Structure formats: structure tokens, C-alpha cells
Amino acid sequence: MKQWYEELFTNYVDKYEKESFTQGTMGEVDFIESEINHDKNCKILDVGCGTGRHTIELTKRGYSVTGVDLSQNMLEKARENASNAGFEIDFRQADARDLPFKGEFDLVIMLCEGGFPLMETDQMNFQILESAARSLNDKGKLIFTTLNGLFPLFHSVKDFINANSKSQTNSGNTFDLMTFRDKYRFETEDDDGNKLILNCNERYYVPSEITWLLKSLGFNEIGIYGCKLGEFSKNDVLTVEDYEMLVITEY
């Protein structure tokens, strides 16, 4: 049985690229470049690369980037986008929990909930962090965004999503204070105009959890910040107003 995120990205590629949350690529890549000091020798892995927006932009700027995603349809679009931009990029289908790399990369990025924290169990989500850590060399850095568990304590996730999405509707949201999981009914149309209804389940994390998980993987330097679309910055202190958090960690 397919999970909701697998069903969603079977035929939701063109719609995905038009969503508001995919429009901040340039500013996000500017930030990534600053975090690696514009070092063109930096080897980068983009986990949950989707249609390749960060992978392709980083490649345009002269970096060696590998993109992985679970969805074959997303990867086909990524390859098409790369070809249209004049690049041949190493895009691979892989499960983020079991990446085929060991110590190969200087930087791993996981942005816009490309895998973590969509898994059905906390253990599965942790396996994604483990796999990303395993892909890094001993001086590597991990940059990812994830859902901020402080946000739903003070705000309606349903209202936030419905106000910020062009083509999807959330309803029946139930945020569980014991598990920090939000379960909801997701309605949209796929790329062919067919109605798509999914029962979704997403995990929100609080900063202390993220810190503990990363320290258990051997990371020493851990920074957690507010996350603004297309405007990542270490100057943004995480607050209850941030739907996502930006995490930057290294050994």
C-alpha cells in the first residue's frame, strides 16, 4: 500500500512547481552558497530533490550536485528541467532512509520537507537523518528545513495551509499533543485535473528534539533558526510564528 506522499507525487508534478512554497529557490541557493563560502569544490547531495530546483540552480552556479528522490515522476521532470537548462545531472531514485552513499559529500541539503518529517513513524524520520549523516564526510555539513512544533501550539495549521496554497485544501486537522503529529484530509487536483483526496500524517518537531537527534548522530555544531521562504538567514530567531525551522549542523 502506497503512503500518502507516494500517491501525491504520482501525478502532481506540474502543480507542485506552481505552489507558492517552491518559489524561493534563488534566495535559498544564495544562502546555501554563503554557508559553504562559495567553494566550488564542495560536493553536494540534495535529498528529496523533487523536480530539481535547488539541484539545477546550484549546478548552474558551478557546483557538483547529486539529486535523489523517491518519486520517479518527479525525477523525470527534474531531468527534463536540467536538459532544458543545458545540464546533465546525476538524478537518482532512492529512499531517503537508505541512501547509497558513505562519506561522499561535503554538504547535504533537505529542503521543503522533501522526506523528513513525512514518515509514518519517528523511527523512520530518524533513519533519514542517519542516512544523510552517513552520506557526509567527517567535516560535512547538513542543512535542512522541518515543521516547527511550536507553530501549531498557537496557530491553526489548516488555516495556514489553506491561506498559502493555490491548489490544495486541508480539512479535519487533528494535532496530537502527545505525538506532535498533524493528521488531516488533503484535497487537490492532479496534473490531469482529477480529484485527489489523501489522508495525510506529518510530524512536527520542537528544537530540543532536533538538537537531541542530531547530537546522537555525532553532530557538534547545531543551529536552529526561523525559516522564511526564499530568505534563509541566521539572523532570524525561531519563534511560534514560524511554520518551519531552518537547521544547520556540522561535525
Rank of each mutant, 00 (worst) to 15 (best):
F101I: 00
N173V: 08
K166C: 09
A163N: 07
V157K: 03
E189G: 08
Q93Y: 08
D122R: 00
F126I: 04
A96L: 04
G114M: 01
D90C: 09
I197T: 14
C200F: 09
D106T: 05
Q127W: 06
E88T: 13
N164V: 01
T169R: 01
G172E: 09
I128Y: 06
S83M: 07
T211H: 13
C200T: 11
F144C: 03
C112E: 06
T121Q: 05
I197S: 15
Q93N: 09
R134D: 14
T145M: 02
T121D: 09
P207Y: 13
F105T: 02
P152T: 08
D182I: 01
R181H: 14
E104D: 13
A133T: 03
E209T: 09
F186S: 11
R92K: 11
P152W: 11
K195D: 15
F126R: 00
S165I: 01
I89V: 15
Y184V: 02
L136K: 01
A132H: 00
S171W: 03
N173W: 09
Y204G: 12
A96Y: 06
D138R: 00
D190N: 13
K166F: 14
P152R: 04
D182A: 10
V108Y: 09
Q93I: 06
I89Y: 14
T211W: 11
A94D: 07
A96K: 01
